[in-house]
Amino acid sequence: MQKNQIEVAIGLLFSKTRVLVGWRNAQQHQGNKAEFPGGKIEQGETAEQACRREVFEEVGIDLIDWQPFELIQHDYDDVIVRLHVFFSYVPEAVLPQIQQPWQWYTRTELANLNFPKANQQLVQRLALPQRIKIRTQLEALADLQQGQVMYYRPEQQADLAALHALSQEQLNKLILNKVWAEQLSLDQQAQLVAIHLKQPQLFATQRGELRVGQCYLAACHDLAGLQHAQYIGCDAALLSPVLATATHPEAQGLGWGQFQQIAQQVDLPIIALGGLKHEDLGIAQQCAAYGIAGISQI
């Protein structure tokens, strides 16, 4: 017997590093589970129109600026569900209008909630790494511990054969710059933690050009870079250098005060980079960072 297919629009609502989550009634399909706002797409609606309508009906706020995030198909025992997922940042002035019982959770807390199986891909992408190791040798992948990820920054021409030979498990721990990522198949790129955009690559990218379903991490050095990263739909951004570094002695560090002042002016998660140690995650988070990255001491 052929299963029914349901087209559903989902709206991910972000406030800085937090995500809005609700709870499904016991009578609903996949009831008694956590959920993101959304519902069935009605006849005559686009997926984005349905997302905006559902968020207004369920959450009580009407947001105009939506960007595509994922398209997921999941086969349950009784039905096939296609999730058209969009995201939007909630302006601070609108936060008091959000209806109960919707609640904010940090990205790291999402893994502890009981979401339907169709949402697991979303939860995995939203849980951005809080510590990123930057290495120049692919062999360093073998030294990563559970939950750690690495940005591979080759000093010389990358060994493309070695990149192509990486397993899914290895790709799941790796961030590659756009130049190297594009040497891989689309399926391999989708397995990466993120595709990295240097600032020139970032400014050469316009809204609508990022591949839906792919995580992107932008390298930024100022507010203009962060604002463009958020505008085109990057998942997160590196802001550097925070402190003076041995690798770039000519670059003056922002310092934590200026870093915080810049980071607070955007909504997307910011990862601090430059002269940082493993132990600096706490102070980074106090200064509006989501996480930290580094070469020698992370």
Rank of each mutant, 00 (worst) to 15 (best):
V90L: 01
H248I: 00
H164T: 11
S15F: 06
Y152D: 07
E169T: 14
K277L: 07
Q120N: 10
A47D: 13
H84I: 00
A289M: 13
L217H: 13
L254R: 05
Q168V: 09
A236L: 01
G44H: 10
D78W: 01
D159V: 09
L122Y: 00
L197Q: 11
R135E: 14
L138M: 02
F259K: 10
Q183S: 11
G31F: 00
D267H: 08
K16T: 11
E139K: 12
K40H: 06
W102S: 06
G38W: 08
E57G: 02
Q121N: 12
L192A: 04
G257Y: 09
L160T: 14
E48L: 15
R211Q: 14
A194D: 04
V19C: 01
E155I: 01
Q264I: 07
Q73S: 13
Q170L: 11
A181V: 01
A181H: 07
D75Y: 04
R52I: 14
A272F: 11
I80D: 06
A237G: 03
L176M: 09
Q252Y: 04
Q103N: 13
G275I: 11
L184F: 02
C51N: 04
N114E: 12
A111H: 13
V85F: 03
L223M: 06
Q137L: 09
L166H: 08
H221I: 12
R207T: 10
R125S: 14
Q206L: 13
Q28T: 07
P129Y: 10
Q252T: 07
T245F: 03
Q130V: 12
V94Q: 14
G39F: 05
A181S: 09
W256D: 07
A140I: 00
N4L: 10
P37G: 07
L166P: 05
Q120V: 05
G31W: 05
A161T: 11
E54P: 02
I262V: 10
Q191A: 15
H221D: 06
I271Q: 07
G60A: 00
Q2W: 07
D235L: 06
G282I: 12
A93P: 00
L192T: 06
Q100T: 07
L20P: 01
W66D: 01
Y231C: 02
A190K: 09
Y151A: 10
Q201W: 06
L20E: 02
L192M: 08
L63R: 01
S240T: 11
E182Q: 13
I98H: 01
F115S: 09
L128Q: 09
Q265Y: 11
T17W: 02
Q27R: 02
A219V: 12
P154N: 05
E92D: 14
C215V: 15
A244R: 13
L166F: 07
R24P: 04
L223P: 08
K198C: 00
T108E: 15
A236G: 08
L138T: 01
Q30I: 00
A190P: 01
G147R: 11
A237C: 05
I262G: 03
H164M: 09
A142M: 10
Q43M: 07
F86D: 04
Q146M: 12
H248D: 04
P154Y: 06
S185Y: 05
R18P: 11
G11K: 02
D235R: 03
A289P: 13
S167E: 08
Y89M: 01
V149G: 08
E48W: 03
T247N: 04
A162Y: 05
Q30E: 13
